[in-house]
């Protein structure tokens, strides 16, 4: 379990670090403000932990798959507050921007699920065809 979780965590840590570097550079270039490295890195760690937990729950074999998917999204939400806390008013000039971000993340989450599902449905269709052929042969 820990091995699987660590694998997902490391991937997220890498991706979130890159996103944070880009955003911190944008803030520095546009507003000439240097954000605290330690503060940002703690944020990256927390967000990576949350996102890897969400992915782990979403992919969990146990339990109802729909419940797992919904739980996955609910778990992601607190990471947005961490994100806002890190960049504050430099990125979030209005309070409602966090809600827009929630919707955007929801849409991305939905798209990822849709793509994943479509890919696997094709695979399942192929396996069912093979099974049918095998039964006919017998």
């Amino acid at each position: 379990m820990m091995k699987k979780y660590s694998g997902i965590f490391l991937k997220f840590l890498f991706i979130i670090n890159i996103i944070y570097i880009i955003l911190a550079t944008i803030v520095y270039r546009r507003l000439d403000i240097r954000l605290s490295f330690v503060r940002l890195e703690i944020g990256v760690l927390i967000i990576s932990l949350i996102l890897s937990l969400a992915t782990y729950i979403m992919k969990l074999e146990k339990g109802n798959s729909i419940v797992n998917v919904i739980l996955g999204y609910i778990i992601i939400v607190p990471s947005l507050y961490v994100f806002r806390n890190n960049f504050g008013t430099y990125l979030f000039r209005s309070v409602w921007l966090i809600y827009i971000l929630m919707v955007v993340v929801g849409i991305i989450y939905g798209v990822v699920l849709y793509v994943l599902n479509k890919k696997y449905k094709d695979e399942v269709k192929h396996l069912n065809e093979l099974l049918e052929e095998k039964k006919k042969q017998e």
Binding site: K59, S65, I66, L113, V124, E138
Partner: peptide
């Protein structure tokens, strides 16, 4: 036993 398989199905979270 593949001879005892009836169908395959995928779930919303990408499990089979």
């Amino acid at each position: 036993n593949t001879r005892k398989l009836k169908t395959f199905k995928s779930t919303i979270n990408g499990r089979m």
